[in-house]
Design a protein around this nucleic acid. Structure first.
Length: 658
DNA sequence: GGGGGAAGGACCA
DNA sequence: TTCCTGGTCCTTCCCCC
């Protein structure tokens, strides 16, 4: 964001969620709205906080741009090859057999209020208050008023705006009426909020021999007849596209995207990425400023950069968006993971007031938990300071609690430790519920036994066929996935620290096969070269499975080999020690990366030396050892931790190692 | 090294 | 003068076993 001194029209760069166009705001004078929003916000603590956040993002964008600038033509063609391969694999997974319908009620809360009070019809109304608006009807949107906008700004944009307080009982009642209609078309419809739902209408279309267009029209009519409210609908082969489609002809309209690849690719080609669920303001900003990506099609065209800068799990998502792919099966029902309550108030440091508020919130939370039969053992206190800084402080208890007294006593202890502080919000969240023991373990945190048995193996970056072939040893003989070397198959094996083998090969993800291809060598020759992430891809023959304990040579031996040989960049891109990919042009980053491994090695040596000597002396200086460990952890930014990259770090794969 | 807690951030309706 | 609420998921960092 520019400061006023930096431009003649500083408001143009002040973009908040409510300066973006929403359905019904097409004819709005965007410049005027931006100027008013800017002028009314300027100088406030909220504005200052937004500037801080914006500056932070800008700083990240700058460093990411620098990374992109370092990519050479050779790097780009390397990653282009990877992107092309992934695109082909993703394309092969395309499923056009399902018909999904997404419905979205038009300005739901405002429409319900107008329905119940006809005198409001035709007038601009906003549901909410002077501090915040939940929904604005289409008359109000013509003035630039929209959900998530502070009411006092909305008043300035539309002086005749009528405010109506929220009434969730009413909205829930009407929501239930719409759900009765949904059930007739899909008993297993997915409700994502009071006013939105996904329906699988494949069977309805087939059984009744009617088009999806007719089903959508019929459903919308039924909703109008039974509730008096209008809705919009989108039909597409997957959930992601259906959601995008329902927004196209809003309000009171529908859009059908045929189950046809060409139609999908045409549709997606000019679609702004922000329309896609999961891509918000920050990601949009970064994509635009770092890679010049604005539309979904750009995602495909910049595929090489996406693969160069992101991990496969992230780049796969972006490439899928570019191909118009999305979920086609009904997602499994998920259990609630937390429950919370929070209140905003005028910023104050009056401790009596703050503890009073805390008591009120504890009571609300306790009542909500009792109503839902929940008790939990992790309590999180959320605080927002008068400068809009958000802090959370969590504590886990020995037993599950539910009563106001228990919650308040625990929350008070945490709050006390934070005071004195001027606050404008306090919130409490309870998680780790009593029945959590029945919930599945995080698939990312599996035991070695679980990993070997294939239970919940998570290879999100891999196509399903390849997952099958990598999950269990006994499946290997039947695997249909691509062979890495002719007549052989590869098994992914989690290693123990005593194992090693001449036949072991390392592999982080499916880029391995490309590595083989680009080397012009078979996997087994590469197999003998390096290890990644302490996981080894073991060369096996058909009908031959490998137990981890069959891998007899020691990792230490291999490590020694690496140390002796030093770190090498396989194929000029892949670190032989940890497997991270880094283009040859990233000279400084590579230097830092080598330093990291060197430091790690020295530390290991030092640790074993000390352990040996201390053991010999018969005493352990626990605290000193602990301190050294702490220092190590503080230094750590392990290149082995390359499983996930947060949104802001999407591009910083290489930087992580610095 | 795995498991899990804590903290913070992105995103959504 | 005034910028929400409630939820999920992901990632990093850290500590303990």
């Amino acid at each position: 964001m520019e400061t006023p001194a930096e431009g003649e029209r500083p408001w143009q760069s002040y973009n908040t969620v409510y300066t973006n166009a929403k359905a019904g705001m097409e004819g709005v004078d965007k410049e005027k709205v931006q100027r008013i929003v800017y002028e009314m916000s300027k100088g406030s603590k909220y504005f200052e906080n937004e500037q801080r956040k914006e500056a932070f993002i800008k700083q990240k964008i700058e460093s990411l741009r620098a990374q992109v600038d370092k990519l050479t033509d050779k790097d780009i063609s390397h990653f282009q090859m990877i992107a092309n391969k992934r695109i082909l694999e993703l394309e092969a997974s395309r499923d056009l057999s399902k018909i999904w319908l997404h419905t979205d009620m038009d300005a739901f809360y405002a429409a319900v209020e107008s329905l119940e009070k006809p005198s409001l019809q035709g007038k601009p109304i906003a549901v909410g208050g002077l501090s915040m608006i939940s929904t604005a009807n289409y008359e109000a949107r013509k003035f630039g008023v929209r959900a998530a906008m502070p009411g006092f700004i909305a008043c300035k944009l539309c002086p005749d705006l009528i405010f109506v307080p929220t009434n969730f009982e009413k909205y829930t009642f009407y929501s239930e009426l719409t759900r009765k209609v949904f059930r007739r078309y899909d008993p297993e419809f997915i409700s994502t909020s009071l006013d939105e739902a996904y329906l699988n209408i494949t069977d309805v279309c087939i059984n009744r021999g009617i088009s999806s267009d007719e089903v959508a029209g019929e459903l919308r009519n039924a909703i109008f007849e039974e509730t008096g409210l209008t809705c919009s609908a989108g039909v597409a082969p997957n959930l992601m596209l259906a959601k995008v489609c329902s927004d196209i002809n809003k309000p009171n309209g529908q859009f059908i995207l045929p189950n046809d690849r060409t139609a999908i690719m045409t549709f997606i080609s000019s679609l702004p990425i922000r329309k896609i669920g999961g891509i918000g303001k920050v990601t949009e900003h970064m994509f635009r400023d770092v890679l010049g990506i604005k539309t979904c099609e750009d995602m495909l065209q910049k595929g090489a950069f996406l693969c160069a800068l992101f991990l496969s799990s992230s780049s796969d998502f972006f490439l899928s968006v570019g191909l118009g792919l999305g979920r086609t099966e009904t997602p499994e029902l998920r259990m609630r993971k937390s429950i919370s309550s929070e209140r905003t108030f005028r910023a104050t440091d009056d401790e009596d007031f703050l503890f009073q508020k805390l008591g009120d919130i504890a009571e609300t939370l306790s009542n909500d938990m009792k109503e839902k039969g929940l008790s939990g053992r992790t309590l999180t206190l959320k605080l927002k300071t008068d400068s809009f800084e958000v802090r959370t402080r969590a504590t886990s208890l020995q037993k599950c609690i539910q009563s106001k007294e228990d919650i308040l006593s625990c929350a008070s202890r945490i709050l006390k430790a934070e005071l004195p502080l001027s606050l404008r919000l306090i919130g409490l969240r309870m998680s780790h519920f009593n029945d959590d023991k029945n919930s599945p373990v995080d698939p990312m945190q599996k035991s070695i036994v679980g990993f070997l048995s294939g239970e919940g193996a998570n290879f999100s970056a891999m196509p399903s066929k390849k997952q099958d072939c990598l999950e269990t040893s006994d499946k290997i003989e039947d695997q249909e996935g691509p062979d890495f070397s002719e007549g052989h198959s590869m098994q992914y094996v989690e290693f123990d620290s005593t194992a090693d083998d001449d036949h072991t090969v390392t592999r982080k993800d499916d880029r391995f096969s490309l590595l083989c291809e680009s080397h012009g060598s078979d996997s087994s020759s590469i197999a003998k070269k390096f290890k990644i992430n302490d996981s080894y891809l073991v060369e096996t023959k058909p009908n031959e499975s490998v137990e981890p304990n069959e891998l007899t040579h020691s990792v230490e031996a291999q490590s020694t080999q690496i140390e002796e040989a030093g770190l090498i960049w396989v194929d000029d891109y892949i670190c032989s020690v940890c497997g991270i990919e880094m283009p040859p042009s990233f000279i400084m980053e590579r230097g830092e990366h080598s330093d990291y491994h060197l430091a790690e090695m020295l530390q290991k040596e030092e640790t074993s030396y000390r352990r040996c000597h201390l053991a010999h002396e018969g005493r352990f200086e626990h605290s000193a050892a602990h301190n050294r460990e702490s220092v190590r952890k503080k230094q750590k930014c392990s290149p082995k931790e390359v499983k996930h990259i947060p949104i802001e770090a999407f591009f910083s794969k290489c930087k992580k190692n610095s």
